[in-house]
């Protein structure tokens, strides 16, 4: 029995009369790469926002490491080991890559309120920044301003900044959106290798690209109209035409290979 990290229990989230999530339950254990799939409006982002404590569910609850996520606040949750990224790439345009990555390093070390020491002279945190950058292949970019990076690099810096917290569980909302299909594979590979190297125990990712899911996920969770309609390993998922029809509509045949 592997250790359980996150438990979603019967979570329901409504926006007025519209039900975005309807009684969704699942557990996420150590060592899993969980892909969340479903058509637009299925509730994928709402799910990620609820799991990360950003939204309070109307019913049910989310537990991380056996303790409820609700009311904890984003920064406390992140420090406790549940990190996330956002659908749109979020970088600080004027920061260098090193500065962007160091924000989390200082937070993790409890140094955010250190006022009178230049951050560049904090050796221990800067060593961590270099280590994280190296895991993402960004070590030659440390002094580059974030706004000058390519779209793919921005995505990587965005995720790297969160992984500096060395989370146990990382939630990624469409990590490859806005990336050309030629680069998607490389980004995903870099990201997974870096996550492993930095000790992340499980990943949950909202993803549309079936080929990427077939290649990298260890489990697929399917949402439709706010309900959980599939929760299975990828090979079972891709062998079930009814489930695929419901969730994706069509499948590139090479993903079934």
């Amino acid at each position: 029995m592997t250790e359980m990290l996150l438990r979603a229990l019967n979570i329901t989230k409504r926006y007025g009369a519209f039900t975005a999530l309807a009684g969704v339950s699942f557990d996420i254990s150590k060592g899993e790469v969980v892909a969340v799939v479903g058509p637009n409006g299925a509730g994928k982002t709402t799910l990620v926002n609820t799991l990360s404590g950003l939204f309070m569910p109307d019913e049910g609850g989310v537990m991380f490491e056996g303790r409820p996520v609700a009311g904890l606040g984003a920064s406390a949750l992140a420090l406790r080991g549940l990190a996330r990224s956002f659908q749109l790439v979020t970088i600080y345009p004027s920061f260098t890559v090193a500065e962007m990555i160091s924000v989390g390093a200082f937070a993790r070390a409890g140094q955010t309120f250190r006022l009178l020491r230049p951050s560049a002279t904090c050796r221990r945190e800067q060593a961590q920044v270099r280590e994280v950058a190296a895991a993402f292949g960004l070590e030659h970019r440390l002094e580059t301003t974030c706004s000058a990076l390519s779209q793919g690099e921005k995505k990587l810096v965005d995720i790297a900044s969160a992984l500096t917290l060395r989370p146990r569980l990382m939630l990624l909302d469409e990590p490859t959106s806005g990336i050309s299909s030629a680069d998607k594979d490389r980004i995903m590979e870099t990201l997974l290798a870096a996550a492993q190297r930095l000790g992340v125990e499980s990943l949950v990712l909202v993803e549309h690209d079936m080929e990427l899911i077939a290649r990298y996920a260890t489990r697929v969770i399917g949402l439709k109209a706010g309900s959980l309609v599939a929760d299975m390993p990828p090979d079972a998922f891709f062998r079930d035409p009814a489930v695929i029809e419901t969730l994706v509509g069509k499948v590139p045949h090479n993903a079934l290979g």
Binding site: S52, L54, G73, A74, S75, A76, A78, L79, A83, R84, F86, T90, Y92, P93, S94, F95, E99, M100, S102, V103, G104, F106, A107, R108, Q111, T112, F113, R114, L115, L116, R117, P118, S119, C122, E125, D158, S161, A162, T164, L165
Partner: peptide
């Protein structure tokens, strides 16, 4: 300082910054 970085980070994107462990 690390504080100055956190302050600017919160200016650029509050939500992202709080998920980086910054209150």
């Amino acid at each position: 300082s690390p504080f100055g970085l956190a302050l600017k980070a919160g200016r650029d994107n509050e939500r992202k910054t709080s998920f980086l462990g910054v209150p």
